[in-house]
Design a protein around this nucleic acid. Structure first.
Lengths: 337, 337
DNA sequence: GCGCTGGCTGAAAGCGCTTTCAGGATCATC
DNA sequence: GATGATCCTGAAAGCGCTTTCAGCCAGCGC
């Protein structure tokens, strides 16, 4: 069923049908009724491709994330989508699995679909790609692309602060041997989290020892990384994870090895995914406001001024739950509760 | 940048550019090179809307799920998408939150986008909607829509068998007081799971008592439902959950109440989401092969014959893990393991 | 040398819509 | 009753592509 056919059946012109459907006020109520009756009767659904082509706007936003199985990304997506829906926009998601070639493919795909805005929430973005994308005349917002580039709008989280607070909190509980469970190596922002960890550790000075390990962004990846960490000579009493998604596996690996959390080992995650508070033990973590990021991304895309890009910075917040406690052998009074 | 502009710069006709881009063999290599050079040079990306309109095919599949936050649905989506990508198809997802009006809106949206196939993996589908959708001339595949309709292709899981096996397994471990944690009421297939549970229980006869509770499809929902169950007069020693996603919260609620799993209470989920084996304790559950469902859905959409719809039936399989064990007070030998 | 076939290419129609533009009604105003 | 002004409507152009169709040019057999 096409618009022309609807027009024919209603005995009006295509232009009128189009106007009725787009809610134009310049059409007499009687006409409107006549058209709508036919539309309902034949269950007409306009072809979005024709609409996009003729109208020059797709009413679509795009979002690219690294790992859609990680609830953090899903949280951002849901928030973005919710706002978009209210404005009668749809949002397309693609996920890259942290692979650059898939990111490139996703970007191309979004551009071919003529999205009116693109949120790039990935860790595998590099300078070159950023420049290239920014050169397109589509509003783009980036998340977590390391230090801010001059002419793009980006949302950044102060991972350094989050890591630092977590580390200091654990230090204050008496921990001196730390482990870090990070992502597969090589990706900018993820490497940065590890670097931050290292810096914080080194700032603690001689009394502190630490080690790092990494795996895929999944519970299984966290489990393996934790295994590596625990098989080493350093026996960490506190493990920081690059994200909650991996922390799930870390908890599991500790459990498998008969180590109690938090009595023997404290664990802290990052992101505060919904699951974090439902785990046993519930997860101490750093809150990254997913809904807020989704909303900010949406607003940047829809109402942002490409001419003056924004650099949005988000401060993370430590949330202490059950998975962290005093270092073993320490005075067992809980410092925070 | 448009195809016409590329054609102009390459000194060829639009038809030739189109042929080159679609990989038509009917174009001389020298021409092809000339065109491709320009395409790369100007970084030309065809407009999918124009392609879809002119070509009459969108190279897009649609998938509607009830709850994208539930990893089960995500698993099916990932599999479907993987197969689609291999055939140069894209897949659009929408999620409904189990709300009928959102389902209707999603279907309309997919139809407007002229998807070439639609997988409807939701629980809130009713007879009327099924008929209506089946009447469209788009390949459609349904999942979990209760008893098979005559003229649609659907993928069904024998929930009854899964529930029965789980119940029998727990019964054999000495459990006599059962609880069921289900979804929010009213939705066909979900009600059915509860009904199945009830039937199985009644078949056990007088010695067995049981109760049911329900909540949202989320860990929090499971937690609340478990709370209801445990606050009742029946003190179940075994809890069956409608899905793993909710079971996570059930485990947590038990933990909160100082009940050990499986020593005091056994818990069984449904779906076998990836998380299930990484939880502490790992979750006894019924395996529903998400990847297979995604693949079957894909094949049904792409290669299925609308004229002869298929009724695909999947047998679930019980996976015993740590969350289940002998009823308290029973001989402590583990029956399985 | 002529007619034919086959391989390439371009002109043009059209996919289903939006939007401008012009014109016919309708109405108030003088 | 003429004159605009206002309101509605339809014709038509065009969005960026695909695809048919016709035509051109080689190369071939006779």
């Amino acid at each position: 069923m096409t618009l022309a056919e609807v027009a024919r059946r209603a005995g009006v012109s295509a232009a009128t049908v189009s106007r009725v459907l787009s809610g134009s006020p310049a059409v007499k109520p009687s006409m409107r009724e006549r058209v709508l009756t036919v539309v309902r009767q034949v269950n007409y659904l306009p072809n979005v491709h024709a609409q996009a082509l003729a109208g020059g706007r797709s009413r679509t936003l795009g979002m690219i994330v690294s790992n859609i199985e990680n609830p953090f990304f899903l949280g951002v997506f849901m928030a973005l989508e919710e706002h978009a829906t209210q404005q009668e926009y749809e949002v397309l998601v693609e996920h890259t699995g942290y692979r650059r070639e898939r990111l490139v493919a996703s970007i191309r795909s979004m551009l071919k679909r003529r999205v009116e805005g693109l949120a790039v929430i990935v860790s595998e973005m590099d300078r070159g790609l950023i420049e290239e994308l920014a050169a397109q005349d589509v509003p783009v917002v980036f998340y977590d692309v390391g230090r801010p580039a001059r002419n793009i709008t980006s949302i950044r989280v102060r991972y350094d602060r989050g890591t630092q607070r977590t580390a200091e909190y654990l230090y204050s509980l008496g921990h001196r041997r730390f482990g870090f469970v990070g992502h597969h190596a090589g990706l900018g922002p993820l490497e940065e989290r590890k670097r931050t960890f290292t810096e914080v550790m080194e700032r603690f000075g001689k009394g502190v020892r630490f080690a790092t390990a990494s795996g895929m962004d999944s519970p299984a990846g966290g489990r393996h990384a934790a295994g590596d960490l625990l098989s080493g000579t350093l026996r960490p009493t506190a493990i920081l994870c690059a994200n909650d998604h991996m922390a799930v596996g870390v908890l599991r690996e500790l459990h498998d090895r008969g180590l109690r959390v938090p009595d023997d080992v404290s664990v802290a995650g990052f992101d505060n995914i919904g699951l974090a508070e439902h785990l046993c033990p519930s997860l101490t973590t750093v809150r990254i406001p997913q809904r807020m990021i989704g909303q900010l991304a949406f607003e940047a895309l829809m109402f942002g001024d490409a001419a003056k890009p924004r650099d949005i910075v988000i401060e993370p917040e430590l949330i202490v739950r059950e998975s962290s406690g005093p270092a073993p052998g320490t005075n067992r009074r809980r410092r925070i509760d």
